[in-house]
Write a protein that binds this DNA or RNA. Structure first.
Lengths: 153, 153
DNA sequence: GTTTATGCAAAGGCTTTGCATTTCA
DNA sequence: TGAAATGCAAAGCCTTTGCATAAAC
């Protein structure tokens, strides 16, 4: 099963990361990673907190924030700020490179891919001497659905 | 003088925008716009508040936040969230299209341009039926300076 | 046995809100 | 004059911090 494979994979990556940095391998950390990789799409801390509370594992918000920092550092999770101040997260491993379309009307966030973004990253490295770790491209506007609604109100 | 020209230009755009939307033309609003366009680079609300306090015009933080929303709506100002929760703003008119390189080491934000981003916007419109209003591309990593420091510590 | 992580609650920082006062139209 | 904007302070929301307790190593 692909999902189980991915779980095993990221758990191993995280474990190695913790070891390499002298961090402890607590059950909370692995439970959080597991929960993060059990779902698709974006989530905020409150939602993750709720999910874990209803399930077997209850962790504090503080631990969620701390663990997110670790997961972001080892590139298993990405953090976004689409609108407002609240951070949104998503899993980042084995997930095809993508960027986001944010609809100003309905607030929905769609994903899209474009290979030219990789070319831009390469150019930035070559021309500006900038070592790229990651990028985030958000395109804001009005999605197809909301546009249809506009025309026939 | 080019600066004065630009000031006159954006004041007119803002004035027309306010009229078109039935908003009032208060001196605070024009003073804020003027202050925003008197400087280059990014700024946060606190800095703008400080600048205006030391100068002739003192406005409340609430009015600054409200006016930023208006200026963003008429595309005279852009809002960014580079790191953390605090919003950064910059003027947007007559300013060549650009994106940002964010250094994780020193926190500096550089600008860069790449015409391929416009092609990506066009493709998104054609293929996904998404009407683009604006975009934001942030590339995170380590800038040239910090990399040099790393090598010779 | 140390040292690090967790959990809780309190503090913090940025932003928004409510309401009295002022000001534009 | 009437509706909208301002200013101030309080409230809100998300996030971080401090400290006692628990648990890795």
């Amino acid at each position: 099963m692909v999902v189980a494979e991915q779980q095993a994979n990221v758990q191993r990556i995280f474990s190695e990361y913790l070891e390499r940095h002298g961090h402890r391998k607590t059950p909370e950390r692995f439970a959080i990673l597991s929960e993060v990789y059990a779902h698709d799409g974006h989530f905020d801390i409150e939602r993750l907190y709720g999910r874990m509370k209803t399930k077997k594992y209850r962790v504090s918000r503080a631990t969620l924030y701390n663990t997110m920092d670790l997961l972001i550092d080892c590139e298993l999770v990405r953090r976004h700020r689409f609108i407002g101040t609240q951070a949104q997260f998503e899993k980042a491993h084995s997930y095809r490179q993508h960027d986001h379309l944010v609809c100003a009307q309905c607030g929905e966030v769609q994903e899209f891919c474009d290979p030219r973004i990789q070319q831009i990253r390469n150019t930035v490295t070559e021309v500006m001497g900038f070592t790229v770790r990651y990028h985030a491209l958000q395109i804001h506007g009005v999605c197809r659905n909301c546009q249809a609604k506009r025309q026939t109100p």
